[in-house]
């Protein structure tokens, strides 16, 4: 088992953690013992001492994320990390946008869920390659899991990689996967104050998709208040109002993707 991910419950369909790894597992910052309270490094096993370390707990994840990002850049792939609470319609949105894009770019999808490959099956039904990651007890994808999934996907050059994170508005905010952008999906059947209640995710995202707009006539959902809440948490967030069911707003979403996919890709 790989010592880095520490996630013994995590399974990657078709992947054995004992398989040869092509990534390094050593990425340690320099350590300076002279900065400790005593001003020097005291040797000896029995002596009580304080060791000053100053290391970011997420540095291993950051190293994997940077490796993923470098690999995506080499391949000209635009990676988008799609996050939301469960049931906001992430998979339905992906199915819809993949259909609307109609092979304009080669696409691959990584699906993160606690259990089952139901989401990857739905994506594959559109004809696109998909890799399911089951996180078991884990509540988020990390960059290490995504790197392994990329190994198995045979990423197309100059294409799009959608990463559908585990449905959870808290934990995935802290884990960079190497993506170019996080896209947060909020649906009209949730509260309009959700950006204020879960600010980390909305602060970390570059685009918010307000999904299930087709239900608005039947709901008491204040769109204006919702957009205001999102912009209060993140004044730079872009917002599109969409419906995975009817396809409303998909042209705008395609334009948003196109504006970012072209700079990411390499000339043939």
């Amino acid at each position: 088992m790989c010592a880095i991910c520490g996630c013994g419950d995590t399974t990657l369909a078709g992947h054995d953690h004992d398989a040869p790894h092509d990534h390094g597992h050593d990425n340690h910052a320099a350590m300076d013992y002279s900065r400790g309270p005593a001003g020097l490094h005291v040797t000896g096993l029995s002596q009580a001492r304080t060791i000053r370390i100053e290391r970011d707990i997420l540095e291993k994840n950051a190293a994997f994320a940077n490796a993923n990002r470098a690999r995506l850049r080499r391949q000209g792939t635009l990676a988008l990390n799609v996050v939301s609470s469960p049931g906001s319609g992430k998979t339905s949105l992906l199915v819809r946008i993949i259909t609307c894009l109609d092979k304009r770019w080669p696409i691959a999808v990584i699906e993160g869920d606690q259990q089952t490959s139901r989401d990857a099956d739905r994506i594959r039904a559109t004809g696109v390659k998909a890799m399911q990651i089951n996180t078991g007890k884990g509540c988020h994808l990390d960059a290490h899991m995504v790197g392994h999934a990329m190994d198995h996907l045979d990423l197309p050059a100059n294409g799009l990689l959608f990463i559908e994170n585990v449905g959870n508005l808290v934990c995935p905010a802290a884990f960079d996967l190497g993506e170019a952008h996080k896209i947060v999906v909020l649906s009209t059947t949730e509260g309009e104050d959700k950006p204020l209640k879960y600010p980390d995710m909305f602060a970390a995202s570059d685009l918010m998709l307000l999904n299930k707009s087709d239900l608005l006539p039947h709901l008491e959902f204040d769109v204006h208040a919702c957009l205001g809440a999102a912009r209060r948490v993140n004044p730079r967030i872009e917002i599109l109002i969409v419906s995975a069911r009817t396809g409303a707003g998909m042209e705008d979403f395609i334009a948003w993707i196109a504006a970012r996919a072209a700079p990411a890709s390499h000339p043939a």
Binding site: G36, S46, R49, T50, I51, I53, E54, R55, D56, I57
Partner: peptide
């Protein structure tokens, strides 16, 4: 915004 391992007291 940080979470860091600052130091260890060891024996």
């Amino acid at each position: 915004g940080e979470l860091r391992l600052a130091e260890l007291e060891v024996a």
